[in-house]
Amino acid sequence: METSIYAVVAFYGLAATILGAATMVVFMRNIVHSVLFLAITFIAMAGLFLSLDADFIAAVQVLVYAGAVCIMIVLGIMVIQRTDMNETNLFNKQIMAGAGLTALTVAFGAIFAGRTAWVELVAADAVPANTVDAIGALLLSKYVIPFEVAALLLLVALVGAIVLARDEEVQANADN
């Protein structure tokens, strides 16, 4: 497959944005700023999906992650009491150990991945113009079991969130 120079530039630009923004998520001391950088990370990820012709996944990434997830986090921060906004995303004392471990993991990952002769896997079919149809059909045919399990997983998470967040006193009153 021929790779155009634009695709290469776009990939490296997006990859640098993702890594830079993700690092800032960790290093910002104010958690709201972290969330904003998280949104940038998610949007750049959507860009990566777009460069792979996965337009539906890119849209979902923007809607669900950059939109809903980030806003949920901000709402969560809003309702939780805190003293000083500038001290909401702090480091613990293990910063050196953490840095060392991260450096080691990245180094090993880079060395191992770099020394691998990657085989370019070419998909049997070209990406269809309308990816939503294809994804929908696959979800309900070949991938129907993981799809249904995911549905139950969401139900379980929902039940759990309600059970854990429910106020016991309100619950007791409702029962009486």
């Binding site: 991938y143 399990v149 379980v156």
Partner: peptide, 20 residues
Amino acid sequence: MTLYLGLELMTIAFVILVCL
């Protein structure tokens, strides 16, 4: 994928059970 989703279904259910 089935493997991972089964694993998560189990794990998420356990997380809730643990702090019940």
